[in-house]
Simulated assay, not measured.
Amino acid sequence: MAFNPPPKMTAMAAAAGTYKANLSALQLLMRGLYGGAYIAIGAALCTVCSTGVAAHLGPGIGKLIGGAVFPVGLIAIVITGVELFTGDCMLVPLAAMMKKINFGMVLKNWICVYIGNLIGSIWYAYLMAVGPLVSGHADGMLAVNAFGITAINIAVAKTLTYKAVGAAGMWSCFMKAIGCNFLVNIAILLAICADNVVGKFFGIWFPIMAFVSSGFEHCVANMYFLPAGIFLNHWHPETTARIGGLLQHFGGLTWGDMWLWNELPATIGNIFGGFFFIGAMYYFFYRKEVPKG
Protein backbone atom coordinates (compact mmCIF):
# COMPACT_ATOMS: atom_id res chain seq x y z
CA MET A 1 0.00 0.00 0.00
CA ALA A 2 1.45 3.38 -1.04
CA PHE A 3 2.38 5.68 1.82
CA ASN A 4 3.58 9.30 1.92
CA PRO A 5 6.05 9.88 4.79
CA PRO A 6 5.36 12.72 7.25
CA PRO A 7 7.50 15.45 5.61
CA LYS A 8 5.92 14.78 2.22
CA MET A 9 2.49 14.54 3.89
CA THR A 10 3.02 18.00 5.42
CA ALA A 11 4.05 19.42 2.04
CA MET A 12 0.98 17.87 0.40
CA ALA A 13 -1.27 19.30 3.14
CA ALA A 14 0.19 22.78 2.53
CA ALA A 15 -0.30 22.34 -1.23
CA ALA A 16 -3.93 21.38 -0.62
CA GLY A 17 -4.37 24.48 1.53
CA THR A 18 -2.82 26.64 -1.20
CA TYR A 19 -5.22 25.23 -3.78
CA LYS A 20 -8.21 25.85 -1.53
CA ALA A 21 -7.14 29.40 -0.71
CA ASN A 22 -6.91 30.28 -4.42
CA LEU A 23 -10.46 29.17 -5.22
CA SER A 24 -13.00 31.88 -5.93
CA ALA A 25 -15.55 32.88 -3.29
CA LEU A 26 -18.33 31.28 -5.35
CA GLN A 27 -16.41 28.01 -5.69
CA LEU A 28 -15.75 27.95 -1.94
CA LEU A 29 -19.38 28.72 -1.16
CA MET A 30 -20.79 26.02 -3.46
CA ARG A 31 -18.23 23.39 -2.52
CA GLY A 32 -18.88 24.28 1.10
CA LEU A 33 -22.61 23.79 0.55
CA TYR A 34 -21.96 20.24 -0.63
CA GLY A 35 -19.50 19.64 2.21
CA GLY A 36 -22.14 20.66 4.74
CA ALA A 37 -24.71 18.37 3.11
CA TYR A 38 -22.25 15.43 3.12
CA ILE A 39 -21.48 15.88 6.82
CA ALA A 40 -25.24 16.10 7.45
CA ILE A 41 -25.71 12.76 5.68
CA GLY A 42 -23.37 11.15 8.22
CA ALA A 43 -25.03 12.99 11.11
CA ALA A 44 -28.51 11.91 10.01
CA LEU A 45 -27.33 8.32 9.62
CA CYS A 46 -25.78 8.49 13.08
CA THR A 47 -29.14 9.68 14.48
CA VAL A 48 -31.13 6.90 12.85
CA CYS A 49 -28.71 4.04 13.53
CA SER A 50 -28.16 4.92 17.18
CA THR A 51 -31.89 5.18 18.00
CA GLY A 52 -32.90 2.69 20.68
CA VAL A 53 -29.50 1.01 20.88
CA ALA A 54 -28.47 2.31 24.32
CA ALA A 55 -31.62 0.91 25.97
CA HIS A 56 -30.77 -2.63 24.83
CA LEU A 57 -26.98 -2.75 24.50
CA GLY A 58 -25.80 0.08 26.74
CA PRO A 59 -24.79 3.70 26.07
CA GLY A 60 -21.25 2.83 24.98
CA ILE A 61 -22.43 0.54 22.20
CA GLY A 62 -24.97 3.15 21.16
CA LYS A 63 -22.16 5.70 20.83
CA LEU A 64 -20.01 3.19 18.94
CA ILE A 65 -22.71 2.44 16.38
CA GLY A 66 -23.35 6.14 15.80
CA GLY A 67 -19.62 6.75 15.46
CA ALA A 68 -19.19 3.83 13.07
CA VAL A 69 -21.60 5.25 10.47
CA PHE A 70 -20.86 8.97 10.79
CA PRO A 71 -17.56 8.96 8.81
CA VAL A 72 -19.37 8.55 5.46
CA GLY A 73 -19.58 12.35 5.28
CA LEU A 74 -15.87 13.12 5.55
CA ILE A 75 -14.98 10.17 3.31
CA ALA A 76 -17.23 11.66 0.61
CA ILE A 77 -15.76 15.15 1.13
CA VAL A 78 -12.13 14.06 0.84
CA ILE A 79 -12.60 11.73 -2.11
CA THR A 80 -14.87 14.06 -4.13
CA GLY A 81 -12.98 17.28 -3.33
CA VAL A 82 -15.60 19.53 -1.74
CA GLU A 83 -14.98 21.87 1.20
CA LEU A 84 -15.22 21.47 4.97
CA PHE A 85 -14.55 24.32 7.39
CA THR A 86 -12.98 22.14 10.07
CA GLY A 87 -10.47 20.62 7.66
CA ASP A 88 -9.66 24.05 6.26
CA CYS A 89 -8.90 25.20 9.82
CA MET A 90 -5.70 23.17 9.47
CA LEU A 91 -4.91 23.00 5.74
CA VAL A 92 -5.21 26.67 4.76
CA PRO A 93 -3.27 28.19 7.72
CA LEU A 94 -0.57 25.58 7.13
CA ALA A 95 -0.17 26.95 3.60
CA ALA A 96 0.07 30.46 5.07
CA MET A 97 2.72 29.37 7.56
CA MET A 98 4.67 27.88 4.64
CA LYS A 99 4.40 31.36 3.02
CA LYS A 100 2.50 30.05 0.01
CA ILE A 101 -0.50 32.36 0.69
CA ASN A 102 -1.34 35.19 3.08
CA PHE A 103 -3.63 35.11 6.11
CA GLY A 104 -6.20 37.30 4.39
CA MET A 105 -6.77 34.39 2.02
CA VAL A 106 -7.21 32.12 5.04
CA LEU A 107 -9.99 34.37 6.34
CA LYS A 108 -11.73 34.47 2.94
CA ASN A 109 -11.65 30.67 2.75
CA TRP A 110 -13.00 30.23 6.28
CA ILE A 111 -15.89 32.70 5.85
CA CYS A 112 -17.03 31.36 2.47
CA VAL A 113 -16.74 27.69 3.41
CA TYR A 114 -18.43 28.23 6.81
CA ILE A 115 -21.43 29.90 5.16
CA GLY A 116 -21.60 27.18 2.51
CA ASN A 117 -21.41 24.42 5.14
CA LEU A 118 -24.21 26.12 7.09
CA ILE A 119 -26.51 26.35 4.06
CA GLY A 120 -25.92 22.74 3.03
CA SER A 121 -26.38 21.40 6.55
CA ILE A 122 -29.61 23.32 7.21
CA TRP A 123 -31.00 22.20 3.84
CA TYR A 124 -30.37 18.56 4.76
CA ALA A 125 -31.82 19.12 8.25
CA TYR A 126 -35.00 20.42 6.62
CA LEU A 127 -35.09 17.39 4.30
CA MET A 128 -34.84 15.02 7.28
CA ALA A 129 -37.28 16.98 9.47
CA VAL A 130 -40.07 16.75 6.90
CA GLY A 131 -39.08 13.25 5.81
CA PRO A 132 -37.56 10.35 7.76
CA LEU A 133 -37.85 11.97 11.21
CA VAL A 134 -41.65 12.14 11.08
CA SER A 135 -44.36 9.60 10.28
CA GLY A 136 -47.96 9.86 9.11
CA HIS A 137 -50.85 8.80 11.32
CA ALA A 138 -54.42 7.74 10.75
CA ASP A 139 -55.65 11.22 11.72
CA GLY A 140 -53.93 12.60 8.65
CA MET A 141 -51.22 14.43 10.61
CA LEU A 142 -47.47 14.02 10.73
CA ALA A 143 -45.89 13.33 14.11
CA VAL A 144 -42.33 13.03 15.32
CA ASN A 145 -41.28 9.37 15.25
CA ALA A 146 -38.62 7.55 17.31
CA PHE A 147 -35.82 8.83 15.06
CA GLY A 148 -37.14 12.37 15.42
CA ILE A 149 -37.22 12.07 19.21
CA THR A 150 -33.56 11.03 19.06
CA ALA A 151 -32.84 14.07 16.88
CA ILE A 152 -34.46 16.41 19.42
CA ASN A 153 -32.67 14.76 22.33
CA ILE A 154 -29.33 15.18 20.54
CA ALA A 155 -30.07 18.88 20.02
CA VAL A 156 -31.02 19.27 23.68
CA ALA A 157 -27.81 17.54 24.79
CA LYS A 158 -25.76 19.89 22.60
CA THR A 159 -27.41 23.12 23.80
CA LEU A 160 -29.63 23.03 26.88
CA THR A 161 -27.33 20.81 28.95
CA TYR A 162 -24.66 23.49 28.51
CA LYS A 163 -27.14 26.33 29.09
CA ALA A 164 -28.24 24.73 32.36
CA VAL A 165 -24.77 25.12 33.91
CA GLY A 166 -23.79 28.42 32.26
CA ALA A 167 -20.12 29.26 31.76
CA ALA A 168 -18.99 25.77 32.76
CA GLY A 169 -21.16 24.36 29.98
CA MET A 170 -19.69 26.75 27.42
CA TRP A 171 -16.17 25.77 28.50
CA SER A 172 -17.09 22.09 28.21
CA CYS A 173 -18.37 22.64 24.67
CA PHE A 174 -15.19 24.55 23.76
CA MET A 175 -12.91 21.79 25.06
CA LYS A 176 -14.95 19.08 23.30
CA ALA A 177 -14.56 21.09 20.09
CA ILE A 178 -10.77 21.15 20.46
CA GLY A 179 -10.80 17.36 20.87
CA CYS A 180 -13.06 17.01 17.85
CA ASN A 181 -10.93 18.94 15.39
CA PHE A 182 -7.75 17.40 16.76
CA LEU A 183 -9.15 14.06 15.57
CA VAL A 184 -10.76 15.38 12.37
CA ASN A 185 -7.45 16.76 11.17
CA ILE A 186 -5.59 13.61 12.13
CA ALA A 187 -8.07 11.93 9.77
CA ILE A 188 -7.27 14.48 7.05
CA LEU A 189 -3.53 13.89 7.43
CA LEU A 190 -3.96 10.11 7.37
CA ALA A 191 -6.00 10.45 4.18
CA ILE A 192 -3.19 12.53 2.65
CA CYS A 193 -0.67 9.86 3.70
CA ALA A 194 -2.50 7.24 1.61
CA ASP A 195 -2.32 7.16 -2.18
CA ASN A 196 -5.34 4.92 -2.75
CA VAL A 197 -9.02 4.96 -1.89
CA VAL A 198 -8.87 2.04 0.58
CA GLY A 199 -6.08 3.70 2.55
CA LYS A 200 -7.93 7.02 2.59
CA PHE A 201 -11.13 5.27 3.72
CA PHE A 202 -9.55 3.65 6.76
CA GLY A 203 -7.35 6.67 7.52
CA ILE A 204 -10.49 8.78 7.81
CA TRP A 205 -12.79 6.21 9.38
CA PHE A 206 -10.97 5.43 12.63
CA PRO A 207 -10.33 9.00 13.93
CA ILE A 208 -13.82 10.17 12.95
CA MET A 209 -15.39 7.16 14.64
CA ALA A 210 -13.32 8.06 17.71
CA PHE A 211 -14.46 11.70 17.80
CA VAL A 212 -18.16 10.88 17.42
CA SER A 213 -18.10 7.96 19.86
CA SER A 214 -16.26 10.14 22.40
CA GLY A 215 -19.00 12.79 22.28
CA PHE A 216 -16.94 15.70 20.95
CA GLU A 217 -18.40 18.80 19.26
CA HIS A 218 -18.10 19.47 15.51
CA CYS A 219 -19.48 22.85 14.46
CA VAL A 220 -20.48 21.66 10.97
CA ALA A 221 -22.15 18.46 12.14
CA ASN A 222 -24.01 20.62 14.66
CA MET A 223 -25.23 22.77 11.78
CA TYR A 224 -27.31 19.66 11.00
CA PHE A 225 -27.99 18.24 14.47
CA LEU A 226 -29.28 21.48 15.99
CA PRO A 227 -31.53 22.75 13.16
CA ALA A 228 -33.03 19.26 12.81
CA GLY A 229 -34.00 19.30 16.49
CA ILE A 230 -35.19 22.91 16.32
CA PHE A 231 -37.33 22.29 13.23
CA LEU A 232 -39.00 19.28 14.81
CA ASN A 233 -39.61 21.00 18.13
CA HIS A 234 -41.02 24.15 16.51
CA TRP A 235 -43.24 22.32 14.04
CA HIS A 236 -44.39 19.74 16.60
CA PRO A 237 -44.57 21.66 19.91
CA GLU A 238 -46.25 18.72 21.63
CA THR A 239 -42.80 17.11 21.79
CA THR A 240 -41.76 19.57 24.52
CA ALA A 241 -44.12 17.98 27.04
CA ARG A 242 -43.56 14.52 25.57
CA ILE A 243 -39.79 14.67 26.12
CA GLY A 244 -39.88 16.84 29.28
CA GLY A 245 -36.69 17.49 31.23
CA LEU A 246 -34.56 20.44 30.12
CA LEU A 247 -36.62 20.86 26.96
CA GLN A 248 -39.73 21.58 29.01
CA HIS A 249 -37.81 23.56 31.63
CA PHE A 250 -36.49 26.02 29.03
CA GLY A 251 -39.67 26.01 26.95
CA GLY A 252 -38.15 24.39 23.87
CA LEU A 253 -35.17 24.90 21.58
CA THR A 254 -34.31 28.24 19.98
CA TRP A 255 -31.90 29.47 17.30
CA GLY A 256 -30.31 31.64 19.98
CA ASP A 257 -29.56 28.50 22.02
CA MET A 258 -27.93 26.95 18.96
CA TRP A 259 -25.54 29.85 18.36
CA LEU A 260 -24.74 30.92 21.92
CA TRP A 261 -24.50 27.56 23.66
CA ASN A 262 -22.99 25.48 20.88
CA GLU A 263 -21.94 26.99 17.55
CA LEU A 264 -19.97 29.88 19.02
CA PRO A 265 -17.79 27.88 21.45
CA ALA A 266 -17.67 24.88 19.09
CA THR A 267 -16.43 26.98 16.16
CA ILE A 268 -13.72 28.64 18.24
CA GLY A 269 -12.69 25.29 19.72
CA ASN A 270 -12.58 23.67 16.28
CA ILE A 271 -10.28 26.48 15.08
CA PHE A 272 -7.95 25.88 18.03
CA GLY A 273 -7.99 22.12 17.50
CA GLY A 274 -7.23 22.31 13.78
CA PHE A 275 -5.03 25.40 13.48
CA PHE A 276 -2.92 25.30 16.64
CA PHE A 277 -2.93 21.66 17.72
CA ILE A 278 -2.41 20.12 14.26
CA GLY A 279 -1.49 22.70 11.59
CA ALA A 280 0.96 24.76 13.66
CA MET A 281 2.50 21.71 15.31
CA TYR A 282 3.09 19.82 12.05
CA TYR A 283 4.61 22.99 10.60
CA PHE A 284 6.95 23.03 13.63
CA PHE A 285 7.72 19.30 13.30
CA TYR A 286 8.50 19.15 9.57
CA ARG A 287 9.03 22.65 8.18
CA LYS A 288 12.77 22.00 7.75
CA GLU A 289 12.21 18.59 6.19
CA VAL A 290 9.53 19.52 3.65
CA PRO A 291 10.73 18.57 0.16
CA LYS A 292 11.59 21.63 -1.92
CA GLY A 293 9.69 22.43 -5.14
Rank of each mutant, 00 (worst) to 15 (best):
A191S: 09
A191Q: 01
I192V: 07
C193D: 11
A194L: 11
A194G: 10
A194R: 11
D195R: 11
N196E: 15
V197Q: 12
V198H: 13
V198F: 14
V198Y: 13
G199Y: 00
G199M: 02
G199H: 00
F201Y: 13
F201S: 09
F201K: 04
F202H: 10
F202A: 11
G203Q: 06
G203D: 03
W205T: 07
W205R: 12
W205K: 12
F206N: 00
F206V: 15
F206P: 02
I208P: 03
M209V: 03
M209W: 12
A210R: 04
S213A: 13
S214F: 06
G215P: 02
E217G: 14
E217V: 12
E217N: 14
H218D: 12
H218W: 07
H218N: 12
C219T: 05
V220P: 12
V220M: 14
V220Y: 15
A221T: 02
A221S: 05
N222R: 12
N222G: 01
N222I: 12
N222P: 04
F225Q: 05
L226R: 07
P227D: 03
P227C: 05
P227R: 11
A228L: 07
A228H: 06
G229Q: 04
I230D: 00
H234E: 13
W235I: 00
H236G: 00
H236N: 03
H236F: 09
P237M: 05
P237S: 05
P237G: 08
E238L: 02
E238M: 05
T239W: 09
T239Q: 15
T239A: 10
T240P: 02
T240N: 05
A241G: 08
R242F: 13
I243A: 10
G244P: 10
G244E: 07
G244K: 10
